[in-house]
């Protein structure tokens, strides 16, 4: 069943208020929630159990691909495609390949980090319902928001609103789709 709203948003004035509310909401059993803050808060990630993400793995894969690309490209070109005999020195001159292999590793890993970040955050995202809350513009300035989404099995417009009110927010707003 599609809920009439995207979720319920509670506004807080301090990071401490937000972190305590996030803990309380999770303790109550809500899982489909997200918090919004103007800067990263380590305790908030802990409260929402967001400790692990796949980005390091993505970057590692990017780096290994870069290393292989760099090395194999040089090997292919200097040994097979365009061999140059310089005084009988070996064609597979691996020490000379180190620099470019290293640079390609870093290049691919950095691309993996940037695009991995975008992919894991679901960006670019042209539309998101939270922006329907007029005061949400302050989430990038000095206010802290906690949103319980209506897809949560425990979500009930009245009961959840009443529960959020007990957490001493500045305001609780319905988030339109």
């Amino acid at each position: 069943m599609r809920q009439p709203v995207h979720g319920l948003m509670a506004e807080f004035e301090t990071p401490t208020g937000l972190v305590q509310a996030a803990r309380a909401v999770r303790e109550k059993g809500y899982r489909k929630l997200d918090a919004y803050s103007p800067f990263p808060i380590e305790d908030l990630s802990a409260a929402l159990h967001l400790h692990k993400n796949k980005l390091p793995l993505i970057v590692l894969i990017g780096g290994v691909c870069g290393l292989l690309t760099g090395y194999l490209m040089q090997y292919y070109i200097t040994v097979w495609y365009f061999p140059i005999n310089v005084g009988g020195r070996p064609l597979h001159s691996w020490p000379a390949y180190i620099v470019i292999s290293f640079e390609m590793t870093i290049l691919f890993a950095a691309f993996a980090a940037t695009f991995g970040l975008l992919a894991l955050c679901g960006l670019p995202m042209p539309y998101h319902p939270v922006f329907n809350v007029p005061r949400f513009a302050l989430a990038s300035r000095n206010r802290f928001f906690l949103c319980i989404e209506s897809t949560d099995p425990l979500f009930d417009l009245k009961a959840t609103t009443a529960f959020l009110q007990t957490l001493e927010p500045k305001e609780v707003t319905e988030v339109a789709h």
């Binding site: 803050s37 990263p40 808060i41 980005l55 970057v59 975008l118 894991l120 960006l123 995202m125």
Partner: peptide, 21 residues
Amino acid sequence: AMGWRGSARHWSVHETASLLL
């Protein structure tokens, strides 16, 4: 800004990305 909304999920990945970069 590509739709950045300062979500805790965004921040946690962003911190990892900054450290890795």
